[in-house]
Design a protein around this nucleic acid. Structure first.
Lengths: 209, 209
DNA sequence: CTTGCAAAATACCCGTTGGTATGGTTTCTA
DNA sequence: TAGAAACCATACCAACGGGTATTTTGCAAG
């Protein structure tokens, strides 16, 4: 009976967890939209609740504080970028092709998480110190891996770079900043932009055409 | 006597204006440091006053509101960038050399106004709408001029670019983002960094070595 | 020394907002 | 169907901070 109870509880708990996850997700989306439009400090939790048709205690049932909501939002952009990095590094291709994959995937990650990236960039001072530190580690990890990729391409004679560190930071900045100017309804599709930007980055790395 | 009074008054007023300007300058510096370290909304005017050894009404004697202080700070970064742009465009050299001058000058402007640029990027949502619009116009002006420069270099056969618009936004982002990672005490001097970054940008523009 | 004025300090106001105690309501278990 | 437990809304609080009215200080002129 204890076992039966546990399995029933587990199944029930799973459904409940899914509901909880859905509520968290909707809350994060609503908050991200407002944080993006108005800024974190200028957005009240009542405003977030209002756009969802609920009230403040609803949010506090799923997040222990406003800062935890922010941390959840900020984590998404960094994670998406790291996924793109891992995908590129895992491919069994030349450094040139890895850099091309990374450029496309990284830009796509940034632009399809535009709000989250913008909020991370603007509001990092409002993160709890522990969250800030955790995200900083992820960002440094990304930069380290990009430097290593550039170095391997230079060693292979495919890239021509004086300083892989500065090049890595430059590439990171070029792509990260895209959240500032990108408009989904703009002239170029996300795919066309990714193609264009990746060719700029390859040129910057000194890949001979 | 009326004339004598006026000249005396004028001279006196000049000195008073200088004193006033000095007080404004010190206030802006103190505020910028705190806005940069803690964020705009998390910084109280009392904290700003305290670092200057004065009290809140001192600030209100020279600025009508906290937002005016922010606008003053934000204007500095943009202005410095535009000065670098004008200097490069005014030179009587090839587009390649103009782009090199611009890259160096722009990066130098961003990094020697690091705090102001960071605050502009992070806190633009806290600007008064009129100030926000004014600064947006300046930024668009910068981008337009950069596109024109890239186009002229492509027309002259010096640059090899598919899309000068995307290239301009990429260059703008690459340099603007440098406020994130630059540390004055870092490995490279500002001059060495400017040299390195400008060569990356020229490579990106497709300048043949 | 006195007078007058500008500028800064003290003390204060009040709207806002993150967070919470309590009470009703729904939902799932037995 | 009874009952309980999770959940959410109403109502509330307390702190904080931008901005201001009033008092004090310091300085220059007569």
């Amino acid at each position: 009976m204890a076992l039966s109870d546990r399995s029933e509880m587990a199944e029930f708990a799973t459904i409940r967890d899914e509901v909880t996850a859905l509520k968290r997700e909707r809350t994060v989306e609503a908050a991200a939209q407002l944080f993006y439009d108005r800024g974190y400090e200028k957005t009240t939790l009542e405003a977030v609740a209002e756009t969802m048709g609920v009230t403040k205690p609803f949010i506090y049932n799923h997040f222990k504080s406003k800062a935890e909501l922010l941390a959840d939002i900020c984590t998404r952009g960094v994670s998406a970028s790291l996924v793109a990095m891992e995908a590129a590094l895992a491919a069994d291709v030349t450094p040139t092709e890895k850099l091309r994959m990374l450029s496309r995937g990284f830009l796509t990650a940034v632009l399809s998480n535009q709000r989250y990236i913008a909020i991370l960039t603007r509001e990092e001072k409002s993160l709890e110190p522990a969250d800030f530190e955790r995200l900083s580690v992820l960002r440094r990890d990304f930069d380290r891996k990009l430097v290593a990729l550039l170095q391997s391409g230079a060693d292979a004679g495919e890239f021509h770079l004086n300083d892989p560190y500065v090049a890595a930071l430059s590439i990171g900045g070029l792509v990260s900043w895209a959240y500032v100017w990108y408009r989904p309804e703009g002239r170029l599709s996300l795919e066309a932009l990714a193609e264009e930007v990746s060719s700029l980055i390859l040129a910057m790395a000194g890949v001979r055409p």
